[in-house]
Design a protein around this nucleic acid. Structure first.
Length: 108
DNA sequence: GAACTGACTCAGC
DNA sequence: GGCTGAGCCAGTT
C-alpha cells in the first residue's frame, strides 16, 4: 500500500503548480520520465487525495475535469478552479492553452 | 493466482 | 478526421 518514490515526486510537481494554472497527467509523467505513463499519475492522484496536493489543478490532456467525480461533489473541482481564476465550462477548462502549466517547459 | 479496472495517452486505421 | 486498440503499473476482485 506504500506509495512509490515517484508518488512523492508527482505530489511535489503538483504542489509547484502556480494558482490559476493547471497541468496534465501526461505532462507530469513526461517531466518525471515515468515509463508507466499518465495512468500512474492518475493513480498517484487517487492516493494523493486527502493530502496537501492540489489535485484539482491536474486534468487530462484536453482540459476536461476527468477527476471531478472524486472530489465528493460534481462541482467541487470546478469551484476550486474558479476560485483561482480558472474558468470552467461544461467540465472543460476555458483557454486551456493559456492556463496550461507544463513543468517540462515552465519548471524545467 | 489470474483477470479486470482505472483521475491517460499515443499510434494506427 | 473520428474511432479503436494497445500499453503502462498498481490495487481490487
Amino acid at each position: 500500500m506504500e506509495q512509490r518514490d515517484y508518488f512523492e515526486d508527482v505530489y511535489d510537481v503538483v504542489r509547484l503548480i502556480p494558482p490559476g494554472r493547471v497541468t496534465t497527467y501526461g505532462a507530469i509523467a513526461r517531466y518525471l520520465s515515468l515509463r508507466a505513463g499518465a495512468r500512474m499519475v492518475g493513480w498517484a492522484m487517487n492516493a494523493a487525495h486527502g493530502r496537501d496536493v492540489p489535485a484539482h489543478r491536474v486534468v487530462n490532456r484536453i482540459g476536461v475535469l476527468s477527476g471531478k467525480h472524486f472530489f465528493g461533489s460534481p462541482t467541487a473541482m470546478q469551484d476550486l478552479l474558479a476560485a483561482e481564476g480558472v474558468r470552467v465550462t461544461d467540465d472543460r477548462i476555458e483557454q486551456f492553452d493559456k492556463v496550461l502549466w507544463d513543468p517540462t517547459t515552465e519548471l524545467q
